[in-house]
Design a protein around this nucleic acid. Structure first.
Lengths: 236, 236
DNA sequence: CCCTATCTTGTGGTATACCATAAGACCATC
DNA sequence: GATGGTCTTATGGTATACCACAAGATAGGG
């Protein structure tokens, strides 16, 4: 009676609302540096730029505020949240706790499917990076962020740590703006790519301790870059 | 020239917007169990109940959604997010990582002012509990939540872990609905109060290891209650 | 130039209107 | 009873209007 092939016709995802579309665009724009930290997000010009009503913009800003990407100043309205080294440092510290737990879980209990998924995500990241040269800036700035996010998503979901993934994904949005601050793609991504390869290798090798060390090394490097970038902003 | 006494007249906090007021009321209502998990949050009746326009309700729902207290079902609109034992377990696990770090930091580097603040928060919690008898349900259901939140806030801020506090505070909102599920105030709060006293004592005694153990014990107990409450919902 | 007063306008907060569509109720047929 | 068709209404998504007030510009006086 029931035809499984018909299940494929089911519309699992409703069409995206304007709100969802705008949220993604605004989020990408902030993360990629199109809007600078501290920059005011004034509703009406945003309406013009995005071609939607203020309602959609306002609701979107509520999300972004809850995500920590936007702050509301009294009598001034929303600004793109600044990022201090202290905030970034704490974010890396929390990531260390949560990501090492997930990576070690994967190394302990990983499956072949997980290994394949991780390697696929890593390959996609390499593509996003553009293997045509170390100094070529990718054409789509958000693509790197999405590709590396995918790697982590695979890892957290395989570990079954989906709440931790929510937390980390959100915190990552806040620090990923650092990418837009560095001039050299090689500086910011090659070491990261190498680290993620090491994480993947440790998981495939079923070595939790190696996975933990690889995650920690990755975060240490990323934190050092962040410190350099953000400490230079301290007025002396 | 400049009169410092006039500084006291400065309005540091602007008047709360309707949106802020409604957000707090809705959040409290969800956490206290006034809205049940899975219950639909239909905009127009909410407008009637709260006496505000749909705009305010919609923006509020965006916050609550981002906080994890509300889920949006396609073609059905927002519902109060259900809470599974698996979600709760992961939340307690993350809290363990973050809270032990904060408590140990406080025990290592606490000041007299911190000790006084913690003890004041603990005293306020006892008052909220109502020391008139173990089985008296407090008159204001949200008061217990706020009082215990204050204790943790003091601890995280003293440790300087303000990002972790954001994370934990948000996650706590999601599991604090469990309070509304228990029939006995003694069951749910006396052990917690005792644990928090132990945490406070360990911090005052500058004993990080004891603080870590006290936090872990507290979370273990809370998780056991959650498991009992939420596992009973599994259809067999 | 500095300070104060006044005016204009930009902006956020909020309410309301409009519309599409999905859900649910009801009825007819097999 | 099950199924399909039709109609109504409830509901969410979105746009627009209105208003208060804060910010900024401008003018005048010392």
């Amino acid at each position: 009676m029931k035809n499984p092939a018909l299940d494929q016709l089911k519309i699992e995802q409703p069409p995206a609302t304007l709100r969802e579309i705008v949220q993604e665009k605004m989020r990408d724009a902030i993360i990629s540096g199109l809007f600078s930290p501290g920059e005011r997000l004034v509703e009406r010009p945003l309406c013009d730029q995005l071609g939607v009503s203020r309602t959609v913009i306002r609701e979107t800003i509520r999300y972004l505020e809850a995500e920590g990407l936007v702050e509301i100043l009294p009598n001034r309205g929303p600004i793109v949240a600044p990022l201090s080294w202290e905030d970034a440092r704490q974010i890396y510290e929390i990531r260390r706790m949560l990501e090492t737990a997930a990576a070690m879980e994967c190394a302990s209990a990983g499956s072949k499917a997980l290994h394949a998924d991780l390697q696929a995500a890593l390959e996609a990241l390499k593509q996003a990076f553009g293997q045509t040269g170390p100094d070529v800036v990718p054409e789509v700035p958000g693509a790197l962020f999405r590709a590396s996010t995918r790697f982590y998503q695979v890892m957290f979901e395989a570990a079954g740590h989906h709440i931790a993934w929510e937390v980390v994904n959100r915190l990552n949005g806040r620090i990923s703006r650092l990418r837009a601050m560095t001039l050299s793609a090689a500086e910011r991504e090659k070491p990261g790519l190498h680290h993620m390869q090491t994480i993947c290798d440790a998981i495939v090798a079923a070595d939790p301790e190696a996975a933990r060390r690889a995650v920690a090394a990755h975060l240490d490097d990323a934190a050092a870059v962040a410190k350099r970038l953000l400490s230079a902003d301290v007025p002396e």
